[in-house]
Design a protein around this nucleic acid. Sequence first.
RNA 1: GCCGGCGUAGCUCAGUGGUAGAGCAGCUGAUUCGUAAUCAGCAGGGCAUGGGUUCAAAUCCCAUCGCCGGCUCCA
Length: 645
Amino acid sequence: MKIKIKNLGEFQLKPGSALKDLIPEIKKISKELPVGFKYKDTYIDWHYTLNENISDDLELEPIFPSDKEALIFLRHTASHVLAQAVKELFPKAKLGIGPPTEEGFYYDIYYERPFNEEDFKKIEKKVKEIIKKNLSLERKEISKEEAKELFKNLEEDFKLELIEELPDSKVSIYSQGNFVDLCKGPHLLSTGQVKAIKLLSVAGAYWRGDEKNPMLWRIYGTAFFSKEELKAYLDRLEEIKKRDHRKLGKELELFTIEEDIGPGLVIWLPKGAIVRNIIENFWEEVHLQRGYQLVYTPHIALRDLWKVSGHLDFYAENMFPPMELENRAYQLKPMNCPFHIYVYNQKRRSYREFPIRYCELGTVYRFERSGVLHGLLRVRGFTQDDAHIFCREDQLEEELIKILDLVIYFLKVFGFSEYKIFLSTRPEKFVGSPEIWDKAENALKKALENKGLDYEIDPGEGVFYGPKIDLKIKDVLGRFWQCSTIQVDFNIPERFDIVYIGEDNRFYRPIMIHRALLGSLERFLGVLIENYAGAFPFWIAPVQIKVLTITDRNVNYGENVVKLLKKEGFRVEADFRNEKLNYKIRMAQKEKVPYMIILGDKEESDQVISVRTRKGEVINNLKLEDFINKIKIENQPEYLLNESS
RNA sequence: GCCGGCGUAGCUCAGUGGUAGAGCAGCUGAUUCGUAAUCAGCAGGGCAUGGGUUCAAAUCCCAUCGCCGGCUCCA
């Protein structure tokens, strides 16, 4: 039988033999040995044998250690090594699943008690031993019946459950030493090929993510082909820690979340509030330019409003409980949409008016379970940069395209140029008819295609009132964050029975689009803090310039400079303390102020300034006027856009 | 909500049964200094909260709250 391997040539293989029998031959012609292969969409490792898995002549695509996909092989094996280590140390442990992930791998393992730090160390040691032993892996295909027998004897209950649900009559198992695991692969040749591995953490995880199921212990780890790559990864984890918005938020005095005030409720401190204010002002300006109208609505409303909107039926578990007052129930708002319906309903609407676009920085409250709160990224009270657009069916696609334009513009201004787009379709719990949903889903698809944007479909992830497009933005460290959401809604207009008069003088139902571009200001600022590591670009920096004097003699001159800068509208702080320059620079540097102006006798006598940038560049003998002209340009939101393009 | 870990001064952290500690920040004084920490002194703590064990608890036990890492969910 012929095996063609891309770029390596053709090989003959006898039926019944494994791909690994080709290794000596391949080694002769290739410096580097592939870790495995890809055939169509499946990974094939060296352990595949001809009669079992491969019937016809086929062309395989080799995967080398330098390929990204090679990590899947490596991490699958790494997770087996981990599982073996745990089973050897704790024979009573039962295995769940152990897949590779984006960044590493994990194994979910049931054990009668939690693994503690000591266990963790032991496991780590055992893992290293197994790698050192360089055990060969082996793949076998057996019938489901045989597999059931095997795992029943091993008392691997979770594996039995998995086997039960596998669609094929045959399943594959991999073994190394005396360890066997149900696994579809792919794997490396032997445990010794796992060169750089690190176990990272243990945490409880429900079997199959369902809280009705027993809790297993999930051990996270990561593995790479080289120690250098592993180190780079661990360094990156350190970097992420350094950029944590919770840490920076405290250090830079941006925001606080106080135990006495309540979980998930954010206090914006002056420095953070000014950042938020600058973003809000910019946001409003752009919206007004683009044909939106600004509205304000209350934080609470009569509970009946939420009955009409459908929230009580479909969203109740995310809402704060009602408040009773003068025999009427009020409800803290989880969304802004019903209010905007009433703005719409102020008068009879004509088809000529459309599209009508209402926008609001609307603060909403949602009940999030305590365990999921996370700094600014997951809170209970947040301000959405919300808008609701009412339009006719024939305008829907164009409106969606405009929204996509707008969101891409905003993200660019804030330094995000890469994102993933998801189209979420009808969930299990939904209002309206399936036909209407299909219509809405199609409109979203067409808009995305019109803009030439790639997207993935997230089945069943839509909101109860309509399908949506979500954008996840990629930050400088390559992490993705969900902020923007665009949702088509045929249902709420119907529930509130809103109408417009058409050309033919008859009533029609408008379509509503919900959209938030930055998402919530809290989350967006959290992401922004991490993206910039707290060093905001000039136009949003809470303190843009810090004026430092060298001696007390220069204070008068310093006050003058500060006054002139403030007059121009810049956010300036003075550090005229009787301290050494180095000390003042260090402080300003830690506050991540973009520019320091340093004033000594020299500057004063020449009536100039010295400027030190956040990056450490020094410009001497600058006229204040020239500096102001330079930073005026830098103070525009689009400055960085123009710089990089 | 569930599982594990953690909670000591404004911040970062020492302190594991015997009188609460350090550095930074703050205040006072000295120093007047040129591109990432000048020196000295002072002040600052219900050890998350509430119970319990003990002659004695920051330390051991129980409960509650909060935070962190996950599960799940979403802006």
